[in-house]
């Protein structure tokens, strides 16, 4: 249901803008630098504002905003003549069950392991584990089948566990 009596601008401010920090979180993990992340978020909100009539009220607006964020990101790559890293590994990557003490270590290790992932895996992991989107929502955001989402999250986590586990003998 569309709240009656609220102008389009006011609805956008009330519904979309509160997710600015969440979008910045994803943008920062994607770009790994604050400047690019802020530009990405600004462009995302501008496009979202223009496309706001296409948003179905009652659906997950954070997922919708992430769809636009991802499109802005891939468009930027297209303009630059390259594509985000979409490394697809054969098999599952190193099958390392990380020792519990490594997983319990400080956040710096964790961020380094996350940043070390190819962007396609990193984005999938962030959308799931940080933004807590469902597989279906992630599939819509990335424009890929659910099986690919599952595979990217799995490989992303496996690589992270390997990186974290690899630090300790």
């Amino acid at each position: 249901m569309r709240p009656a009596g609220l102008s389009r601008d006011k609805r956008f401010e009330a519904e979309a803008l509160p997710h600015l920090k969440a979008l910045y979180g994803t943008a920062y993990r994607m770009t790994r630098n604050a400047h690019d992340a802020e530009d990405l978020v600004q462009e995302t909100f501008l496009r979202a504002y223009r496309a706001f009539d296409g948003y179905t009220p009652g659906t997950n607006i954070r997922a919708w905003l992430h769809t636009i964020l991802y499109r802005v990101r891939t468009d930027a790559f297209r303009r630059a003549g390259r594509s985000p890293q979409t490394v697809e590994l054969d098999g599952d990557g190193p099958a390392v069950a990380a020792p519990q003490d490594a997983l319990a270590s400080g956040g710096e290790d964790l961020v380094r392991a996350l940043d070390g992932l190819p962007e396609a895996f990193r984005t999938a992991v962030v959308l799931r584990d940080v933004q807590e989107l469902t597989y279906e929502e992630i599939a819509r955001v990335l424009g890929v089948p659910i099986g690919t989402v599952m595979s990217r999250i799995h490989r992303g986590r496996a690589l992270m566990r390997a990186a974290l586990g690899g630090r300790k003998p």
């Binding site: 803008l17 920090k21 979180g25 604050a34 992340a37 802020e38 600004q42 964790l110 940080v130 807590e132």
Partner: peptide
């Protein structure tokens, strides 16, 4: 375990000006 730790990571904070810029 990994999920829990990622979820608990302090979120990156945008500059104070970002919202005003948007």
């Amino acid at each position: 375990e990994l999920r829990a730790r990622l979820k608990a990571l302090p979120p990156p904070t945008p500059s104070a000006e970002l919202e005003a810029r948007v």
